[in-house]
């Protein structure tokens, strides 16, 4: 029996207005993503890849259609409830890392946990443990501006995973990194995410990642097309 899909997208429509003219990004987009599945999304610049991730994470709303994550229809939730849902169930990795510059590495990692519950010593230990895995144990109290791009992205991946979300969304995580560093980051994602059995959707152009993905989609003519 096939396991229940982690993400169900039904008849998703999204458009934007510019100078009074409506431009469609998605029209009747459908997708089912299974639990633990690793999806790669390809597409030309401006095709709507980032918008797609924003819609799944609930930081943007579709014009029409449904997005159901682990049984919760997030399109039916209020802004506040979507935020709470995201807090618990989504981990986001951005192309430009987006660490909070005024928080240390450890604090950046503790922040998603703190939004969910009161931080305990166990949580702090968990952060240390994760950073040790990343070879960052000695950089706990460093601020992001002291880290290289690759280091920042590794912290960002740890931040996306620290609160044990169901779904990881990664928007071109290696886009700002050189080849070698990008490679290391992808390995890390592979180790931490895939092995933890998390569902992941990643926007990338890396051929190597494409090779590791369960399914690869492209956005063409406002719909998802399997490669």
């Amino acid at each position: 029996m096939q396991a229940e899909a982690a993400i169900i997208i039904k008849e998703l429509n999204k458009s934007y207005q510019e100078s009074g003219v409506r431009h469609d990004i998605f029209k009747g987009l459908n997708l089912n993503v299974n639990n633990g599945e690793f999806i790669v999304l390809l597409g030309r610049s401006g095709s709507g890849k980032s918008t797609f991730l924003n819609l799944i994470s609930g930081i943007d709303c579709p014009d029409r259609g449904k997005i159901i994550i682990n049984g919760t229809n997030i399109t039916a939730l209020s802004e506040h409830d979507r935020t709470l849902f995201r807090r618990h169930h989504i981990g986001f990795v951005f192309q430009s890392y987006n660490l909070i510059p005024t928080l240390t590495v450890a604090e950046n990692l503790l922040l998603p946990l703190e939004l969910i519950k009161r931080i305990t010593q166990k949580d702090r230990d968990k952060v240390c443990e994760l950073l040790e895995k990343l070879n960052f144990a000695d950089r706990l109290d460093s601020y992001p501006d002291r880290l290289s791009g690759g280091e920042q992205q590794r912290v960002a991946i740890a931040r996306a995973l620290i609160h044990d979300p169901d779904v990881i969304l990664a928007d071109e995580p290696t886009g700002n990194l050189d080849l070698d560093t990008g490679q290391q980051v992808l390995e890390l994602l592979d180790t931490l995410v895939k092995k933890a059995g998390k569902t992941m959707i990643m926007v990338t152009h890396s051929q190597e990642v494409i090779g590791k993905a369960d399914r690869v989609f492209s956005i063409k003519n406002k719909c998802l097309v399997i490669n």
Binding site: I59, H88, N98, P112, L115
Partner: peptide
């Protein structure tokens, strides 16, 4: 704005 957007993406509510 972008930094505050990240905080919202992580899960900070508007309030």
């Amino acid at each position: 704005t972008r930094q505050l957007g990240v905080l919202r993406a992580i899960g900070l509510t508007p309030r």
